[in-house]
Simulated assay, not measured.
Amino acid sequence: MNLKFRNKKITGILGVIPEREILFEDEIDNYEFTRRQSMKLKLVMGFNKRRIVNEGTTISDLCIFGLNYLFDKNLLKKEEIDGLILVTQSPDYFMPSTCHVIHGRLGLKKDIYCSDINQGCAGYSYGLNKAFMLLEQDSIKKVVVLNADVLSRKVSKKDRSSGPLTGDGAAITIVENDPSGNTIYGAVKSDGSGVDALIIPAGGFRLPSTAQTAELVKDHAGNYKALDHIDMKGDEVFNFVQREVPLMIDELLNNAGVNKDDVDYYMFHQPNKFMVKQLANAMGVTNEKMPNNLVENFGNSASVTIPILISYNLGDRLKKESFLVCLSGFGNGLSWSSLLMKIGNLDFCETIDYEN
């Protein structure tokens, strides 16, 4: 599905990263592999260090910390927020929506659009798409898009396929109307036949968590995980990304009448270093234009990776400069999405540590 938006812009990006840092070497003995095997994978996949929350910290805590930071710095005012959108797959509760939890704890105004979106790695553009649509309303001037996940709690400590990569975090993106008339191009695609490629089998109403779903079982690759944990069929996900994402980006750029070289940066979701590098090779894009340095520093935090990647690599520059940026997320669902837009001259673009 092709999308098009006019007169909309991002005016600020804030990343919120937990202070707790875990090194790959600290967990290497959890896995049923030799150290030599694991260290070889470290170089290829980007295993290094990741940030995870402490016990008891939820996504609402991360989001509220970041929003209060913006309020205190006078970068955002509570009364300005007309829309609050939260993209997550690790909510505080089944109900109510975590967006309303955040709304209540901050004491935001009642005249506001407030909603959760259940979306994973493709969720950054999903949240932005929703914000762009809301801004079509005369009564909505500023929308806050929250992306947050704490999926480290849903990964087995003995699963080398997901454990060393999974991090936690949140991001806050401010979206407003733009009188300059710039056009934003987007694409959204889904393939529900691949839902089993990346899934947490237990914990919902289909298969509630029990003592049995918590039991660790060894898989064919030598990883131990339970039905309560993230289960990823790595080969299927890798093949899906390499097959579908380059085609989507080609179509997106063609619709926008833009050549691949005209794009300043390709800020893509960061599942692991190897996958991003292979994707850049398949698309004929340099590593300088498609950074792959997030997982090795912070871990894969689902839809949070794209805004953190932007602030980590371009933070100070985006306060003074403007770039044509292609955003793309891809993962469970299966779902994949992208946006092509000008980003720059932001009020803020930084990453801060969450402090309990």
Rank of each mutant, 00 (worst) to 15 (best):
A282K: 15
L108K: 06
F5L: 09
Y124C: 10
V44G: 02
S115C: 15
G120N: 12
L327R: 06
D264F: 01
V150L: 01
F323K: 06
S190K: 03
S60V: 08
D61K: 04
D138L: 11
R20V: 05
P291T: 04
V245W: 01
K157S: 10
Y124H: 12
K225T: 01
N259P: 00
L41A: 08
I200E: 12
Q137S: 12
G167E: 08
I199Q: 13
E321Q: 11
S193H: 05
N48Q: 11
L327T: 04
E244D: 14
G104Q: 10
T351Y: 01
V325M: 12
K277D: 07
Q270A: 05
V258W: 13
L340G: 09
M45T: 15
Q242G: 00
L14V: 09
Q278Y: 06
L253K: 10
F94Y: 06
E21L: 15
T166V: 15
T98V: 10
P164D: 02
G222I: 05
L23K: 15
K225Y: 15
R35P: 03
E321R: 11
Y126C: 07
N332E: 03
N259L: 08
I230K: 06
I59P: 13
D178P: 11
M341F: 01
I112C: 13
D219M: 06
N223H: 07
A280K: 10
N48S: 15
E19N: 12
T34Y: 09
A302K: 01
G203E: 06
F65Y: 11
G204N: 07
P271C: 11
N313A: 09
E79A: 02
H269C: 07
T58A: 11
D316I: 06
F330Q: 09
L318E: 08
Q278R: 13
L252D: 05
D178E: 13
G331V: 12
I140H: 15
R153P: 04
K109S: 10
D82C: 01
V285I: 14
L309M: 05
I230T: 10
T166C: 11
A122L: 13
N147G: 14
F71V: 09
I199P: 11
I64E: 10
C121R: 06
G186H: 08
